[in-house]
Simulated scan of single mutants.
Amino acid sequence: MSDLSAVQYVLIGLIFVWSGFVRSGLGFGGAVLSLPFLLLVHDNPLAFLPIIAIQLLVFSGLTIVMNNRKSQAARQPQGGTVDWRYLGRILAIMIVPKLIGVFGLVTLPPTIMSTIIFGIVTVYSISYLLDRPFRSRNRVVDVVFLMLGGYVSGTSLIGAPLVIAVVAQHLPKEKLRDTLFALWFILVTIKMAAFIAVGVDLELKQQLWLLPCAAVGHVIGLRFHDYMLKAETPVFFRVLGAVLLVVSCIGLWKGLA
């Protein structure tokens, strides 16, 4: 990214502030809500995916550690901010599709993949906006969504909408974000290992200025998340639905474009 203009650098910095805010505020969306805008500035996914992955590892790890220390200091009985038992269950479902996506063992047409994913996400987002969250009483459907989310995260790091559509049904909002952070940390570690194995440039020099940009958004997002936890549950899920709807619209727009 050494040949970009000053305007492009400013726009990229602002987008990474947005990325940090979304990630810490909701626990997901840092990649899927920023990558489409980044590609409008510089059309090279591999220039941004390693940067996003490293930032996710840094900030998700820090947030989990800090929040669990606060929980222990306050002697809260919930057992921390991560539901490790549920995390193990969904990882067991997602890990094989994740590896398939990482190593490119199965390649589906991107148009079909995008249409399926964002069509499903649109249904979920509208149900949250209407304060009538869709509750799948069929475990098979949940497993399919998690497997598809694992595959997509393996190919492009944007499988969060499918995963959150399932996980948000089964976790209390107090544990939702940090459990997702723990999940992303594990999945992104696998993706980073693949980047290193094939010799992808990790853009470490760019992190010197983009990491502080993401840190600014991260701090703002932490405060936003605290506000969301104090809000009524319908408000929380309406915001969640609005974000999911934005995600699906961006995804469908890019797919059609």
Rank of each mutant, 00 (worst) to 15 (best):
A168T: 10
Q169K: 11
Q169M: 14
Q169N: 15
Q169I: 08
H170Q: 13
H170V: 12
H170K: 15
L171V: 08
L171W: 03
P172Q: 02
P172S: 09
P172C: 05
P172Y: 02
K173T: 13
E174V: 12
E174A: 12
E174N: 11
E174Y: 03
K175I: 05
K175V: 02
K175W: 01
L176K: 08
L176M: 02
R177Y: 04
R177G: 00
R177N: 04
T179V: 08
L180P: 09
L180I: 15
F181I: 02
A182C: 05
A182K: 01
L183V: 10
L183W: 05
L183K: 13
L183P: 03
W184N: 09
F185D: 05
I186D: 07
I186Q: 10
I186H: 08
L187W: 08
V188D: 15
T189S: 15
T189W: 13
I190G: 02
K191Q: 14
K191T: 14
K191E: 12
K191P: 08
M192R: 06
A194S: 14
A194F: 14
A194Q: 11
F195C: 04
I196L: 13
I196W: 12
I196Q: 10
I196A: 14
A197N: 11
V198S: 11
G199D: 05
V200E: 11
D201N: 15
D201F: 10
L202H: 07
L202R: 04
E203V: 12
E203A: 14
L204C: 05
K205M: 15
K205N: 15
Q206S: 14
Q206R: 14
Q207F: 13
L208P: 11
L208I: 04
W209A: 01
W209D: 01
L210N: 00
L210D: 02
L210G: 04
P212Q: 09
P212L: 00
A214F: 06
A215L: 13
A215H: 00
A215Y: 07
V216H: 00
V216G: 03
G217P: 09
H218N: 04
V219I: 01
V219M: 04
I220K: 10
G221C: 02
G221L: 03
G221V: 00
G221W: 01
G221Y: 07
